[in-house]
């Protein structure tokens, strides 16, 4: 088990190297001038350009830049964001918890919601029930999160005024304790609803297919032959066995959500990694872009590892072959 985790961690190193080099090349190739982006819509004085180029070593050969960056990363230095005038690592460490909060709460909503709908649709003996949930899940899943987010804002924030339209909290908060938590939750509610419902529908569709597959297995016949009730069969034979594919899909989706939900964070001005990534790309803040991408990649790799471990916990057949 420990050896397995260790091996996977080692395998992640070449993967990260490849990602860094790829990102570096891509950022090098896309048009745009970082110095111009720093100045804005004014002409750049030649002396200033030269000073910036020397300071950030923008004119070094490509390979030297990559080499320097890798050497710095190996020492835990992810570079300096000249747009934010801060260390990239500090910036990421400030933003990441917000994205994690958004992703975790959203999935805490999405997983039970999706499982409930999937089980209800998959186990229903009335074809109408299945059709209703399948169609609903498909339609809702087809709605992009940013648009669903806008709809929720229009209805629940602007019309009914229950929730704030955007942001992570008031500029100055005087609340404490429980009231503070409630205030946080009000800001969290709409992005979580939009994200959670969307992901929940994806999970519902996978869960339904998996439940139907499980129900056709022989051991369900055995369970019926034992004289178990329907509810008991679903609880003790269907739920665990059909959640295996779910772990894979939800795990990967959660991993990529940790890297920032770009559109959603933009819609709700949620200052997480997604928003940071968009801003940095727009402003040619290359160090920050690469930093965020490395963090996302790490999140996905870590989640894949957790998915594999969960899989082994859920399915004893995998435990022995390892």
């Amino acid at each position: 088990m420990l050896r397995f985790v260790g091996r996977r961690a080692l395998l992640a190193i070449p993967l990260l190297l490849a990602i860094i080099i790829l990102m570096f090349s891509m950022l090098h190739l896309i048009p745009g001038d970082p110095v111009q982006a720093l100045v804005g819509d004014y002409p750049v004085p030649p002396a200033y350009r030269q000073a910036i180029e020397t300071k950030y070593r923008l004119n070094d050969p490509f390979l030297v830049q990559v080499g320097n960056y890798l050497a710095n990363v190996a020492q835990g230095d992810f570079g300096f964001s000249y747009q934010n005038q801060r260390n990239v690592l500090d910036l990421i460490l400030e933003r990441a918890p917000r994205t994690m909060l958004l992703a975790s709460v959203s999935f805490a909503l999405a997983i039970p919601l999706g499982m409930a709908i999937g089980i209800a649709a998959g186990t229903s003996r009335r074809p109408g029930v299945d059709k209703f949930w399948t169609t609903t899940a498909l339609i809702v899943y087809a709605i992009p999160t940013f648009w669903l987010g806008q709809l929720l804002v229009m209805l629940l924030a602007l019309r009914l005024g229950w929730f704030p339209t955007q942001g992570i909290g008031p500029l100055i908060s005087r609340t404490q304790g429980f009231a503070w938590l409630l205030e946080k939750l009000r800001y969290l509610a709409l992005p979580v609803l939009a994200f959670g419902i969307h992901e929940g529908m994806r999970i519902a569709r996978i869960m339904r297919a998996s439940v139907i597959d499980t129900l056709s297995q022989g051991y369900i016949i055995t369970a019926r032959a034992k004289g178990l009730s329907r509810g008991r069969i679903i609880r003790s034979h269907v739920m665990r066995n059909s959640s295996l594919p779910l772990v894979t899909i939800a795990g990967y989706a959660f991993g990529s959500a940790l890297g920032g939900a770009v559109l959603l964070e933009t819609v709700f001005t949620w200052p997480g990694l997604g928003l940071l990534l968009v801003d940095s790309i727009r402003l040619r803040d290359n160090m920050t872009v690469i930093g965020v991408v490395i963090f996302s990649a790490l999140a996905v790799i870590a989640m894949n590892l957790i998915v594999d471990l969960l899989y082994a916990a859920l399915d004893p057949r995998i435990r022995t072959t390892r």
């Binding site: 022989g218 051991y219 665990r240 066995n241 859920l314 004893p316 057949r317």
Partner: peptide, 12 residues
């Protein structure tokens, strides 16, 4: 049944 592997729950 004919196929005991398929008729036993693999996770229990």
């Amino acid at each position: 049944f004919q196929d005991p592997l398929g008729y036993l729950n693999p996770t229990q």
